[in-house]
Design a protein around this nucleic acid. Structure first.
Lengths: 218, 218, 218, 218
DNA sequence: CATGAATGAGCATTCATTCAT
DNA sequence: GATGAATGAATGCTCATTCAT
């Protein structure tokens, strides 16, 4: 059995208990900043306590274990990680004829870029722990594959049928698209390889790359 | 000053001292396996010692510190990480007219895929520590950007002049290409999202995605 | 830069925080006894912990490092090591005509003898570490020379002008006097070469030796 | 039973085996320098080996243990520490009437000063370990008291009978004289509180202090 | 004799967690 | 709820000593 049970935690946190104590809130904010900066296992609870201005015992009163603190911090992010967009689009696509995959892709990238930009630190934590911590990876990987990959595959299939997308296996296409977008986000928000300041141009670059690759056409 | 000085270590290890003791060799092999599996900082030296069948002191007699053991394991990999290909190709391209970027890309992917496949565990270590360990990242990032990015940019420029590649900034193209390939390698060798068994098909999929994207053409 | 910064520590410990925890107090007492008996570097923290009836971690919670424990134990002693007497006497001497150097010396010896007797163990620690530990010596030597030597020299000069003391350089006289007294204290409290039980007689012996040497006079 | 048995070692080393190997000789010289500088327990055998240009094993081949190396280095010094002078003088004094205690003292100080000056480093070692290492102290203290103290007491008694020295207990006088001389040697050769460059003047200062104290006489 | 790889007990220090107040 | 002193297992590292070559 897993030490983390992130998915259990996600279900449990259905009602996100908006009434966070001042202290509890402060601990979480501090933990996010420190985990993002130095990594989970390089951040002692003593340092979190000090930076948050609480006693070390208080952390354990609220979260029980350090692991639980990580979970508490990560779960709301994970729940918001699934682009609801994809599902909405899919429903819509089935009924009306709307727009092009290129437009969907553009909106998807824009949407996720904004989401990650607003949750930069937690994104860093999730990426780092996802790779570093085997248990977390084992918990999250199926979740991502199913929820994100799965929806995207459905969307892709629709556009393939319409003839806009190549007819390779939708799984392969989804994987390429996700890897490409995720890779660029990691590069931008974790490795801090800052590209252009102009965000719209950046989005356009990604979209055109994914759609048409690097070959010149006349 | 950095704790690691990986680049210094790389220069110093010019002649890799092939005369590795049995024990030293065993320690390194064991460390590679454990670091890859659980991450550097989650692997106690005591466990390495036990798994390698040596006394803990032996590790420190050979490597001095745990950090040095990591460096000793990583450095040869890093030195072989720069695709000499790119440089050779670049020289060749300047003199004769040979082949297409698509062919270059195919060879590059094939070459690096084989390299990483043969060094799977060390690749896992490097990827994980690269993201998790700030000092290592700070050491390696400029190295990668300059050596890998730099060479690729030069190659791209040549093919742009020949009209095979789109005329967006070569830096952007290089970044997209590298991110895409790196992302797929991470997905395959670190996250273990196994794709097709047919490797040639896999290479072809990447090449076609990078060259032409996902849009259908008649 | 020094590892110890004893003088810094002395300034910092201005208000010695009388509210010592039971445990903290117990640790310090135990450490004093063990350091005095076996020397600082021959006393493992584990042994201190065991003898003090606390967990080893508790030592580090209170003192951070073993070095700091030594400092915490030594500093109050050092601050009380300067005989305020000398300074007071000096001021007094400048205004009124009071007593003889012989009387001053007798009081000085009596005062310091009592002080060391009451701090026997810490005196042992200081003497041993002073000789054994280069860094501690480098920290303390200038302090002693200036504070103890300096004041004594001033006193000696006054009595030289009054014609009670020989007119050799005051520095030389001070050095002889200090060496002689310190040597006898070390002999008594560190080497445990117990002299007479009669302390007053002991003091008188020292004073007469310093004043008149060993030559018989009629 | 003692770990050291210095006295046993002294007896055993009766014939000092002049045929010291090159390596053995080099090890001892290096050990002397390092022990004097950093103290016995702060000097790893590995460092001695390196500095001496031998393998670490070689030290143990020759000396068996690190303790034995210390003993090997110290013992010849200890054997030469007893001023044969005192004994010779005593024999001489019983037969003829020669010179004054003051002259004896002057010669004693000169003789020991030269001895220590020529064996400065071993003197440092002996002083430091004598204070720091209980076992060594327990071994050497009785030896010093008996051999050095004992002889001096006899000499003093003779001069007391002749009326040159005060008639306090000879033991007390001996102790004062030894403490005073030893203290000044420690101050000069261990603490490095350099006095005058003029050695004869220094000797004279000590002699006059011991003989007549600090009181001015007309 | 000499070597140096190997050993493993021992050490200072860290840190998540507990619990009495 | 909040505190922070106390815990003790775990960790990286040191070093005297052994032994096969």
């Amino acid at each position: 059995m897993s030490k983390y049970n992130l998915l259990e935690a996600m279900k449990a946190q259905a009602k996100p208990a908006l009434k966070l104590t001042d202290k509890k809130q402060k601990i979480m904010e501090t933990a996010v900043a420190l985990f993002a900066e130095k990594g989970y296992s390089n951040t002692p609870t003593s340092e979190i306590a000090k930076a948050a201005g609480v006693a070390e015992g208080t952390i354990f009163r609220h979260f029980g274990t350090k692991d639980n603190l990580l979970v508490a911090v990560i779960v709301p992010f994970l729940k918001a990680s699934i682009p609801s967009m994809a599902e909405e689009l899919f429903t819509e696509l089935m009924s009306h004829d709307v727009f092009f995959f290129e437009d969907f892709l553009r909106e998807l990238v824009r949407d996720r870029l904004n989401f990650v930009k607003e949750n930069k630190e937690i994104f860093q934590i999730v990426v780092k722990e996802f790779l570093y911590n085997e248990e977390i990876r084992n918990e999250l990987l199926p979740y991502f594959v199913e929820n994100i990959g799965g929806r995207l595959i459905q969307v892709i299939r629709v556009f393939q049928e319409r003839g806009e997308l190549v007819s390779r296996p939708a799984e392969d296409i989804a994987k390429l698209v996700v890897t490409c977008i995720a890779g660029l986000f990691v590069s931008k928000f974790v490795l801090m390889l800052n590209g252009t300041a102009d965000e719209e141009a950046e989005i356009e670059t990604i979209v055109r790359f994914v759609m048409d690759g690097v070959r010149k056409r006349e």
